[in-house]
């Protein structure tokens, strides 16, 4: 079952189309990352999911409810942490928790104590006096103590130094590993996300590029280096991206790699020298897709 589903979700700001016909499905229980460059439409998508923005057209369903109809009953089971969220900075961490607690029937004070210790937050410091990393942790804490079914994180690592980022990622991994909930996280910080996600959605210029389990995505992408015996034009297959030739060397990204069929195909295409395929990191996949997309956009514009 999908906890988030969007159908032709579109949002326009004047003439600018921030999100265009987005069809996305996030399975319940997954940790899903929405990746994209700055301005790709990640935050707009998330804001539509949590009813901070209304779609221009299309529909988003969150926990089975149209996002425009999300109300207190749904938000009791949802957590939302965003880098842009205006937290009540005049409160201390303790006051923030005290303020949030009565709104959630499922608030777990034991978990609250555990998380306070885990995140090492100073309870009596005002939010305006703590660092940005601490602030994100406080926001995360106030969104975790009621054991939400769905936790939505919008660019939670943005602007954080590597140490704090690492701590935050560890916290999320630790918490998410021990609970049965769905985490939907948007980021352009791929390395951090890679460590925790099991589902990836890639968005570019408001359009969904892909959405699939991380394992499958990494399984089907391979960076292939091949030797050509002659300088003849290189072969090409559907799913090959960023094909580059330099003399007798050729490299490309195979986005449809199959562990059984692809090596056989490479042998057939490069019979004399063969080809070496290596797995790609999420970052490499993301960059490949982003460059491909940009090239396609330029081509279309030309």
């Amino acid at each position: 079952m999908n906890i988030i589903e969007t159908h032709s979700l579109t949002r326009r700001f004047g003439r600018n189309e921030a999100v265009c016909g987005l069809d996305l499905a996030v399975p319940e229980g997954s940790v899903c990352a929405l990746l994209g460059q700055n301005g790709a439409g990640k935050s707009t998508t998330i804001k539509m999911l949590v009813n901070l923005l209304h779609p221009t057209s299309g529909e988003a369903r969150v926990m089975g409810v149209d996002s425009r109809s999300l109300g207190p009953r749904q938000f009791e089971q949802m957590g939302y942490v965003s880098e842009n969220q205006q937290l009540p900075l005049w409160m201390t961490v303790r006051q923030l928790l005290d303020y949030c607690r009565p709104f959630y029937p499922s608030w777990d004070t034991t978990l609250e104590r555990e998380l306070l210790a885990l995140l090492a937050l100073p309870e009596d410091r005002k939010l305006r006096e703590i660092s940005r990393g601490m602030l994100m942790k406080a926001a995360l804490l106030s969104s975790l103590c009621y054991r939400p079914k769905l936790l939505i994180l919008d660019e939670p690592f943005s602007g954080l130094d590597p140490l704090v980022r690492d701590e935050l990622v560890k916290s999320i991994i630790e918490v998410s590993a021990s609970r049965d909930w769905t985490v939907f996280i948007s980021s352009h910080d791929i390395e951090e996300v890679e460590r925790m996600t099991d589902h990836i959605a890639l968005i570019d210029a408001g359009r969904l590029q892909l959405s699939e389990p991380t394992e499958r995505l990494q399984a089907r992408f391979r960076k292939v280096d091949a030797d050509l015996r002659s300088e003849a034009s290189p072969p090409s297959m559907p799913g090959w991206l960023e094909i580059e030739q330099s003399g007798q060397r050729m490299s490309f990204v195979d986005s449809a790699y199959d562990p059984v069929d692809s090596p056989a195909a490479y042998e057939r295409l490069f019979p004399e020298a063969g080809a070496a395929a290596r797995p790609m990191t999420l970052r490499e996949i993301f960059l490949t897709l982003a460059r491909t997309s940009r090239r396609a956009a330029k081509g279309a514009a030309a």
């Binding site: 009813n51 901070l52 923005l53 938000f75 965003s82 842009n84 205006q86």
Partner: peptide, 9 residues
């Protein structure tokens, strides 16, 4: 779209 309360119950 940055207020705290709309994403709370």
């Amino acid at each position: 779209t940055t207020a705290f309360w709309p994403t709370r119950p």
